[in-house]
Design a protein around this nucleic acid. Sequence first.
DNA 1: TTTT
DNA 2: TTTT
Lengths: 178, 178, 178, 178
Amino acid sequence: MAGSMNKVIIIGRVGQDPKVSYTSSGQAVANFSVATDEGYRDRQTGQKVERTEWHRVVAWRQQAEFVNNYIGKGRLVLVEGKLQTRKWQGQDGQDRYTTEIVADNIQGLDRNPEGQQPGQQQGGYQQQGGYQQNNNYQQSRPQNGNYRQQNNQPPQPEDEDLGPAFPSEASGMDDVPF
Amino acid sequence: MAGSMNKVIIIGRVGQDPKVSYTSSGQAVANFSVATDEGYRDRQTGQKVERTEWHRVVAWRQQAEFVNNYIGKGRLVLVEGKLQTRKWQGQDGQDRYTTEIVADNIQGLDRNPEGQQPGQQQGGYQQQGGYQQNNNYQQSRPQNGNYRQQNNQPPQPEDEDLGPAFPSEASGMDDVPF
Amino acid sequence: MAGSMNKVIIIGRVGQDPKVSYTSSGQAVANFSVATDEGYRDRQTGQKVERTEWHRVVAWRQQAEFVNNYIGKGRLVLVEGKLQTRKWQGQDGQDRYTTEIVADNIQGLDRNPEGQQPGQQQGGYQQQGGYQQNNNYQQSRPQNGNYRQQNNQPPQPEDEDLGPAFPSEASGMDDVPF
Amino acid sequence: MAGSMNKVIIIGRVGQDPKVSYTSSGQAVANFSVATDEGYRDRQTGQKVERTEWHRVVAWRQQAEFVNNYIGKGRLVLVEGKLQTRKWQGQDGQDRYTTEIVADNIQGLDRNPEGQQPGQQQGGYQQQGGYQQNNNYQQSRPQNGNYRQQNNQPPQPEDEDLGPAFPSEASGMDDVPF
DNA sequence: TTTT
DNA sequence: TTTT
């Protein structure tokens, strides 16, 4: 613990609306991806090249609620956190590893595209609504516990606080890590 | 490129002596892992728990030479860099992803255990010797280009600058990501 | 140099249009201030309090030119750099110290309020025009060398690369450091 | 508060034993300075030059107690915190400004020179003893409240949480800011 | 998958 | 795989 630091700071665009779910103990957890861009000059051609790097972000509890309410696809965000590599089992039974940024500070840097004010809860019947696409999240997907039973691939860590559900590899992603 | 940041700062212990190799174009590349520790209090038991996180680090050119000469197993190091996720093919032909810290600043924070001075090159016949375990690296392992032919799993990226050789999965690691 | 780090990262709003000048050797230097906000809960009253912190930023050469062209009052900016404390002589002959962030990375995080494109130079006769308020900077203020003679308070460091002109204390600022 | 970041990370050597005191409400506060080194190549001569930068650090409460117990002159430390500029009145009645790093994370990176274990309190009659030079701190210096009356230069901020006592300019420091 |  |  002493003589140790694990710190990440990224600024970039959110790729898709965050997925927000709740553990069986009621902890909110949000997952989303952020793209950072880097311009560099190719050593061979001398051409300027733009390169995009994608980062998986996980937020828990209050941070997850904030994400649920204010962060959506396309927003410019600041994420500060730490690196964490999770192990999970592929469908072939082999171990896989996924590195994520566990956020402890998330901020929107551009204007909220839906005009919501930070700290202001959306009205209406929905409890954790915010960005519309998240509203039906729990309906369009089985309960967290059930999800694990129905599709134990990729699995949840035994300790619910160790990590959120990993996006299914069956969901059609092929050329990107997440 | 604007409105973008991708920054990582870690301080921790080097797990094994770095692997240093050279691309076919003569670029030095070093790979090593760093452990960071985090103490936290378990929410269930209230007990203090120590948790270790492992980080893969890649260094190129001058940084790789520095690593080769001065960084060895057990050293406390500062690594500053950016996150990069590489795609490679598993033996089963499936895509895998590995996230690494591409270092642009590496420093030893404790005293050099072999008494070498930074900036001071080891004498003798060996060219990039430093930490002894690295000396025979190129002998104990096939040439970079051959390596890829003999064992195309995991493969090198086509662009040699995109990533170093990935540690073989056949090398007996089972429970750790690298 | 080893075992050393001096790193600052701030995100905030630019307080006034940057002052850009040129040293006698032709080096561009930009000075501006950035406000960061911090919300905290007062320990006595339990009330939420907003607190603003002002940071002096100095940028040199290419960074200064970028500032001159794209950064103006009110913009949300990211500044990455290092801390540096400069010594200068007050009118009373006593030593004063000013701490600044010497920037090595400056980015605008909101939309450029004047519609300029990064990397795109403004047309017209003016050489380093950009934000209009900077255009006449060198006219509204004496030459760098003269400035020091006319008003040796606060003075320029002898080495022109050590620091830019310090804002005059006679300029009406009273409750803020700059 | 949103769209704002104020972050500093330094690694360097502690210049003198920290000064630890207590506010009238019993809050511990520690003040010390840290040197960071930077090597660069002089643009005129082409010579390598080493430059030392000094940073004032302030720590409160638990961090101050940790400093009191484990941090002394010469130690290599990591300090993470935020920048804060305090205003105070010089003996001439003029405003002065001092920029400090308000620490929220302090770690010793080398071995504790007095063999103390972190978390282990020194035995004996002294309450917050640790580094010996701090033991008599409260005796060698008047009470915080009295100190301000006897020597209102430089003064304490009215709100005790805004900042610790500033080192007297009469104390013989001439060429360094603190 | 984002965005300029 | 590190280290305290």
